[in-house]
Design a protein around this nucleic acid. Structure first.
Lengths: 231, 231
DNA sequence: GTCTATAGTCGGATAGAC
DNA sequence: GTCTATCCGACTATAGAC
């Protein structure tokens, strides 16, 4: 926790500076990558002085890691209301209930998985998460410490839940490698819409960015594919 | 076509230099990206003098584009023996044959799609294509001229064939937007194994690089998913 | 074709005034 | 906390010897 030695107005400005730098960094690192983004450009885009990167984040790398902390928080709070009912559903299916009909379990699992992945479709496609998603993809191509932050704070929980539902939908209770592999192919169907957007826009003859109607078509197809794969 | 004004031994060395630079560039641009890779490192890795980048490719950017030409050729020649029977199958299904049983058409389409995607699994996972795939993914995150090369020379043909088979498997003859969207989700199931490898290695508790047994498990799952989705 | 040496530019970091 | 000015290292490109 940072301790301000200045009057409130100064404290507010400080926070504004931090936010402006974090937002610009997310955008520019996402669009062009870490090395292609200079501190000068970063500062200009944020409307602040270049020296403030050093002051607030220690270095360019410090800013980069702060971006991941920031993204992890935003994603967590976006996912929290989705994961809450999902996790109580998990508890209900694994321990809390007895004699649930098999077909009912499967149906509820498929529903939970659809919910998780439709939400992922939003994260991948919403403009507000676009840059965050790009930063994460870049980081995975050449992982550093920043990837640890992301995996531990957000991804791990999400992938574990997804895998467990897949396992339960097959009538088992302990996930194995085949369940994990399945969770990856399901994720891939969504992830591709961020990663291969250049190809997709050509192939679909879409213009940037995808409209809301496209989003809905994607979600419908994903839901339909999940049902066919898991039923 | 480059005209050599030197004896054969010199010509050979020139070609070796070009190849060494292209290989190193594919590897390093793929691993770290264009901006994070310096000409010095590139030359050192290739075991040649730094000034030769300028001589052979004009500039660093020239080398970058040459990498895409190179990759496009390698991918094309890898895919050629796969696409040849696929395209004659396409002709047979669209025009050459009459009164083919509907169920037979579907089966043959699903087979063709599986062939295409299993080959894609190889491209994504084979060490010899690893760096090429990474370079392409990076390029898509921030497309430049180089992406045009890739799309026009390789991707377009591949995606068109995939989409057409999907369309035929549904008993139609002219592909629509839903067929194209489906082709993307199918591709995504494979692409994810390159793009999200950092997450996958964690989730699967695999070590780099994937072994041949893992490759086979992936192919089996992809084939099974395709069958379920399209049947 | 290859190499050495260097010109010219731009990068991240920071000292010190306010 | 912010800003100006500046240091110094790393970068790409290229001139010129071989």
């Amino acid at each position: 926790m940072r301790i301000s030695e200045h009057p409130p107005s100064s404290k507010n400005r400080s926070e504004l500076t931090r936010q402006a730098l974090l937002d610009s960094a997310t955008r520019l690192f996402g669009k062009h990558g870490f090395d292609a983004t200079s501190n000068r450009l970063l500062a200009e885009h944020a409307g602040v002085n270049q020296a403030l990167i050093g002051y607030h984040f220690g270095s360019k790398e410090g800013l980069y890691e702060a971006v991941f902390e920031h993204i992890a928080e935003r994603l967590s709070s976006h996912l929290a209301p989705v994961l809450l009912p999902i996790e109580s559903e998990l508890q209900a299916l694994t321990g809390g209930e007895r004699d649930t009909a098999k077909s009912d379990v499967k149906k509820r699992c498929v529903n939970a998985i659809s919910t998780l992945l439709e939400n992922y479709v939003c994260i991948i496609n919403f403009p507000e998460f676009e840059d965050s998603a790009r930063v994460i993809v870049r980081e995975q191509l050449d992982p550093s410490n920043a990837f640890e932050i992301m995996w531990n704070k957000v991804m791990h929980k999400y992938m574990t839940a997804l895998t467990l539902f897949i396992c339960l939908s097959k009538g088992r209770t302990a996930p194995d490698q085949s369940d994990r592999l399945m969770s990856i192919t399901l994720m891939g169907q969504v992830l591709v819409f961020r990663v291969a957007r250049a190809s997709i826009n050509r192939h679909m003859q879409w213009e940037e960015p995808h409209g809301a109607d496209n989003l809905e078509k994607i979600q419908l197809l994903i839901r339909s594919n999940i049902k066919k794969i898991l039923d």
